[in-house]
Design a binder for these strands. Structure first.
Lengths: 148, 148
DNA sequence: CTGAATGCAAAAGCTTTGCAGCCAA
DNA sequence: TTGGCTGCAAAGCTTTTGCATTCAG
């Protein structure tokens, strides 16, 4: 059940914030609430839109800073599949991303569908590889259905 | 020999521009000259800086439009390994990109070093996959040497 | 000659920064 | 009480757009 998962995830974030000496503020909680359980890879603009009804005075600055913080503590991931617009993913386990070139929708691609690229030990060592990202582009099932 | 390669590459571009009914302008030629033979993945700003001594009146608008055109005809590739700054690669054969998290340098990673991820036929079909990009992040040899 | 390309300037889109005031711990 | 956090406004950086002028074919 997604709600239970999200609640558990939120507890995790609170614990991690505390452990790093970071404060538990209503704004941070609100942003975590929006993110955890949202698998559409929302942009800052979209996060702001979701927050503003309940938090009319929340600012973009706060959102940007909070997202940076959450990335730093490893609770969310930056998805740069779209040039010039960062998106965020609450699912931090290794996986890939797909973006539909027609509707722009972004979807997670699990490792079961596309195996993680094998990086040979010598390459890893030479470049001190710390992480790698695979982005896939195409036309999602819905868009292909429409264009037929 | 790089110069010969670049010259040959330039001829190719001219041919392709002609075949698409696009004009051969001094600005386009200058931009191609800068790109072909530059494997540092220059940004628009860097391209502008290289051009301005010889073409003091060239505009960013022209550079942006030309780069878009060259991408469309498949002569260069957009590299979005750095958020909010497009970079361009004259080498269009399939390969990966590495970015040093310390100095920011971007390097090509050939398929011989890291194999292209296998995308199963059913996944390809489901998402109508048209292309895929692998970005690698780490610390380049020079930066690791410095931090030791 | 003519439509496409250029160059300028203005605007747009996303993100960052400075700083005064506020609040979680 | 106090340092970290918030929110506002301004600025920054990259990219796009509109339009008059220029020029390649």
């Amino acid at each position: 059940m997604k709600k239970v998962k999200a609640v558990r995830a939120k507890e995790e974030v609170i614990k991690k914030l505390r452990s790093k000496g970071l404060k538990i503020t209503p704004q941070r909680m609100a942003i975590i609430d929006v993110l955890k359980g949202d698998y559409t890879h929302p942009s800052v603009e979209e996060i702001y839109q979701k927050l503003s009804p309940r938090y009319p005075t929340i600012s973009y600055a706060t959102i940007y800073k909070t997202l940076e913080t959450l990335c730093e503590i490893g609770e969310i991931i930056e998805v740069n599949i779209e040039p010039h617009k960062k998106r965020y993913d609450p699912f931090t386990h290794p996986h890939h991303h797909f973006r539909c070139l027609s509707c722009g929708k972004i979807e997670d691609i699990p490792l079961e569908d596309v195996a993680f690229p094998q990086i040979p030990a010598n390459v890893k060592k030479k470049y001190g590889i710390m992480h790698a990202t695979l982005y896939l582009y195409g036309l999602c099932p819905a868009c292909r259905a429409n264009s037929n």
